[in-house]
């Protein structure tokens, strides 16, 4: 028998989680995942362990107002968001009545599972937040899936993922 460190419940050897309180009883082996198909969350774990380099400082905007840019990680292209308090991200499809403010089609949005109206970024002087708009494949912030229709705060160098399309937030 093994004892749960959290609630002292007795568990059979080999148990991975305490059947009483749900506490994890074992350690993770990251090297063992290499032979397997990666699931999406593994991918984020791996990405996160290798921090992304911040953009060069000389790009910093001189104005006092917050300036936000999005860097598409795969293609390393930067999209500047300026002068708006809210922008929607998605991909444009012919015949669709509602269009996103930013069309991610050039970044292979379709193949990455980006919805037509995927997420919205809200910018106020106090804070910047992202909200998933009920997309099919969800939105993640630093690998953590966020609840749809709920604002989630963003900070500089956060990595958001719309489906599998990863974008770094740059706040200057």
């Amino acid at each position: 028998m093994i004892t749960c460190p959290n609630c002292h419940h007795q568990e059979l050897p080999g148990a991975l989680f305490c059947s009483e309180c749900g506490a994890q009883l074992v350690v993770v082996d990251r090297s063992a995942t290499q032979t397997l198909d990666m699931i999406q969350s593994d991918y984020f774990e791996r990405k996160r362990s290798k921090p992304l380099p911040p953009l060069p400082e000389e790009n910093a905007a001189p104005v006092a107002a917050l300036s936000i840019a999005l860097r598409v990680i795969d293609s390393d292209e930067v999209i500047h968001l300026s002068g708006r308090s809210e922008v929607t991200l998605g991909r444009v499809v012919e015949g669709q009545p509602i269009l996103p403010d930013i069309d991610l089609t050039p970044y292979e949005a379709y193949a990455h599972g980006v919805s037509r109206l995927h997420a919205a970024i809200k910018i106020t002087p106090q804070r910047i937040s992202i909200m998933d708009l009920g997309s099919s494949n969800g939105t993640r912030v630093n690998g953590q899936k966020i609840v749809p229709h709920v604002d989630y705060p963003l900070k500089n160098h956060d990595v958001i993922a719309l489906g599998k399309l990863k974008i770094q937030v740059i706040i200057q």
Binding site: G14, L16, F17, G22, Q24, V26, V27, V28, D29, R30, A32, T33, L36, D37, I39, S41, D42, E45
Partner: peptide, 17 residues
Amino acid sequence: SMIVPETLLQALSRLTL
């Protein structure tokens, strides 16, 4: 000691809930 592949652990962590 028990070292568990991450994919399995993640699936079971969610399943535990």
